[in-house]
Amino acid sequence: MSLIKVEHVSKNYEVILQRSGAKNVWRNLFCPDKKVVYAVQDISFAIEAGELVGFIGENGAGKSTTIKMISGILFPASGNITVAGICPYLKREKNARNIGAVFGQRSRLNWDLPMLDSFELHKEIYRIDPVRYQKNVDMFIEMLHMQDFCNTPVRQLSLGQRMKAEIALSLLHEPAILYLDEPTIGLDVLAKQQIREFIKERNRREGITTILTSHDMKDLDSVCRRIIILEKGRILFDGAIERFKQEYTKESIAEFTYAGKCSDQVIPDGPVRVLLDKDHRLVVAYSPAEMTTAQLVGMVSAYYEINDFTIKAPDIEDMVRGIYEREAD
């Protein structure tokens, strides 16, 4: 039995259109124009205990709505959702004990107090056993390197420090499921890295089922094993990240620097395509499915005296963009 089961769920909003201008004031007030917007349309998926799943989608694709419904904040318009055997929106309070949630765009920490004070409030709200609480606090402080700032008022913390505190806070009550909405937005590289490692570690050790949304595809690439891509309220792709790469990767990019040319000939269009050749830099596109790196280097060295080269791994971001573009057509 899956931990999270979403079956044929739809959710629509009524949006009120504001007309501008003086003469429309009364019309806006008494007979507003309404428009039905489908946030999510007939989506189904199941998530097993211990999975790390990434949600991808542009703004308004339905990511947040989906997460809000499975965390019990919103009712679906139709369809069924079961989380750990209960219905999250009908048994919101019971479900809430079982989940942790971080919404990256806003903070739940008290701005004027050190994070430890917010932790204590969390302890009261979730009725955490004092011994377990202390154990978790100590452990998280060490794992996330928070010793230096755990007594500083939150308003003086950097974005990265704050986010570490937010994530630690949401795990204090040892939830079975963790929802992370844009946890790395605006963070520096090191903080991102530490947070990713922490999420992976928690998943490995405690088996915390984690659902993550992010605009940073590297987050998803390094943390998640499975991704669900949403577009206009529908699921475009649901499966292992490796499968996604295989299915959607057409070309990789290789960049060479060279000392000079061996001949006047240029590389003919074929399995390798020249994108740029300028200032001793050569950028080519090739299909990894058709030729290995060794073959590529061999071929290019027939035309150029290569000094160095780098291969840019296929970027999920580009692939996703590719999918959207294809959908748009």
Partner: peptide, 18 residues
């Protein structure tokens, strides 16, 4: 407006007393 109310709803508490 800003969605902060969602943070109340993900807590195991009754809304008004909380």
């Amino acid at each position: 407006w800003k969605g902060g109310f969602d943070d109340v709803l993900v807590k195991p508490v009754k809304v008004l007393p909380y």
